[in-house]
């Protein structure tokens, strides 16, 4: 782990140096990402101004939900968002082979090489919304800290998606659109589960555990849901285990590009 972290630090430093070669592109991406992800919280504020909103969930609770999800997505994206396109590019060009020549875990090294700081815009917007939501919702800073800790399960969920999609890319090549499924998942997770039909709501707790990304942690911390609901946090752990297994299984089927 210490070795991996050292390599991660070197790759992060190299990634910054590399990105600074195109400063304007980096700045525009960062600002664009930051502003684009402020749109949903603004939309929620506007919605609560003209309607009853989402039942028992106050505007503060909703902002807390959005902030938690964006914080988790931002944290995951900074380290992992490059994973899918990076894998895709490497598999297509045959440079995935070079990755397998490094004396470290292949997935770990791919993560090292996929670090992308322009997604820090998403992380910062999530952080901003989260802090504002903590103030508006009236939860204590201890509860906020607990929520931030529970967000690690959301990070686990998004990380599982990235790993699974990267593995699919190695197997089937040119599956960049998979990236959008992560966006779709996040969009469905942005709302309290009670607005969905019961079948879909059950699905979002179990097989496709979108609820653990924000709804369950925020619901438990704000008192809308019983503590027992935290038991469903086992699903992202299982999902991560499955994704990592699928990744390793995929490597045994890797055929490499010709030449």
């Amino acid at each position: 782990m210490k070795h991996w972290l050292r390599i991660e630090a070197v790759c992060a430093s190299l990634a910054i140096r590399s990105r600074m070669a195109y400063r304007l592109d980096f700045s525009l991406s960062f600002i664009g990402m930051f502003l684009a992800h402020l749109a949903l919280p603004i939309y929620i504020v506007l919605l609560y101004g003209v309607s009853a909103g989402f039942g028992e969930w106050s505007i503060g609770d909703m902002l807390l939900l959005t902030g938690t999800i964006q914080l988790a997505r931002g944290a995951t994206s900074m380290i992992m968002s490059g994973l899918i396109w990076h894998t895709n590019e490497r598999v297509q060009q045959g440079t995935f082979d070079l990755l397998l020549l490094a004396p470290v875990n292949a997935l770990g090294h791919l993560l090292n090489r996929s670090i992308d700081f322009e997604d820090s815009g998403l992380f910062l917007s999530g952080m901003l919304v989260f802090i504002i939501a903590v103030v508006i919702s009236g939860i204590t800073w201890w509860q906020a800290l607990l929520l931030a800790l529970l967000a690690s399960f959301a990070i686990m969920f998004f990380a599982s998606l990235y790993i699974l999609f990267a593995a699919i890319t190695v197997r089937y090549i040119s599956t960049l659109r998979l990236f959008e499924f992560q966006d779709i998942a996040a969009q469905y997770a942005q709302f309290p589960l009670h607005i969905y039909p019961s079948l879909l709501a059950t699905l979002f707790i179990t097989l496709i555990p979108l609820a653990v990304v924000g709804y369950i942690p925020v619901g438990v911390v704000t008192g809308h849901l019983p503590m027992i609901m935290l038991g469903s946090l086992i699903f992202p752990v299982l999902f991560l285990g499955f994704s990592v297994w699928y990744w390793h299984n995929t490597l045994t089927h890797y055929t490499s590009a010709g030449g």
């Binding site: 140096r17 070669a21 440079t95 070079l98």
Partner: peptide, 12 residues
Amino acid sequence: LFGQKSQLWWDI
């Protein structure tokens, strides 16, 4: 060393 695949970072 693969003649047609680079290990170097392109922009640095």
